[in-house]
């Protein structure tokens, strides 16, 4: 896995008129996992979108080395397409080899769903599909926004295993979740300590 690094210093976030948090420091190096914890509305999603470069921070700076994969509540898969084709679009963009593509869908437990149009999938199945998309991307930095939402017990285990393997292979995982996630050697950031 390529060298990766994710740091944020003196980060502040504003949504609308409210400053959600300020003075946040994050420093993640290869192989480290971090859980962002906190109640609803505290700014977990905004933090992840900032780290991904999709939102501008109010103050502070973010330094990234390495490609970023983002898993959020929107799977970015065409609802009308069969799952294999919808995933195939991203696999094509990411340059995933065909063998690797099958491994990703297999790991996510989607083998029996490949012909089913995405709009017929359940919430948990869509989350698994997004996981398969992210696996194929092979990005060293994973940003997971509420990855456990909608998943069954098996799915939760799967996410925890995948994140552990990813970090073991030298990747970075930043996981935002309001529920406990079992991540080995993970640091925890409580956003409530940084509220403005």
């Amino acid at each position: 896995m390529q060298a990766c690094n994710l740091t944020a210093s003196a980060l502040a976030c504003r949504r609308g008129d409210r400053v959600l948090f300020r003075g946040l420091e994050i420093s993640l190096t290869a192989g480290s996992a971090c859980q962002v914890a906190g109640p609803n509305g505290i700014g977990k999603t905004s933090l992840l979108r900032m780290m991904a470069g999709l939102l501008r921070p109010l103050a502070g700076s973010i330094d990234r080395t390495g490609a970023i994969a983002l898993l959020d509540e929107r799977p970015a898969l065409d609802p009308q397409l069969p799952l294999s084709h919808a995933l195939g679009f991203w696999a094509g963009l990411d340059g995933v080899k065909s063998g690797m593509h099958e491994i990703c869908t297999g790991r996510a437990g989607l083998d029996h769903l490949l012909d089913v149009p995405v709009r017929f999938l359940s919430t948990g199945q869509r989350k698994r599909a997004a996981l398969a998309r992210m696996l194929g991307q092979q990005a060293p930095i994973w940003l997971l926004d509420e990855p456990l939402n909608g998943l069954d017990r098996d799915g939760i285990n799967l996410v925890e295993t995948l994140v552990a393997e990813h970090c073991e292979a030298g990747g970075i995982a930043l996981v935002a979740s309001h529920q406990p996630v079992a991540l080995p050697n993970a640091s925890t950031i409580k956003l409530s300590e940084f509220t403005a």
Binding site: A52, L54, A67, A69, L70, D72, R74, P79, Q137
Partner: peptide, 14 residues
């Protein structure tokens, strides 16, 4: 935009 396709494209440098 609703599906998040633009976000995923942006992460891939598009």
């Amino acid at each position: 935009l609703e599906l998040g396709v633009f976000d995923q494209l942006a992460l891939r440098g598009i």
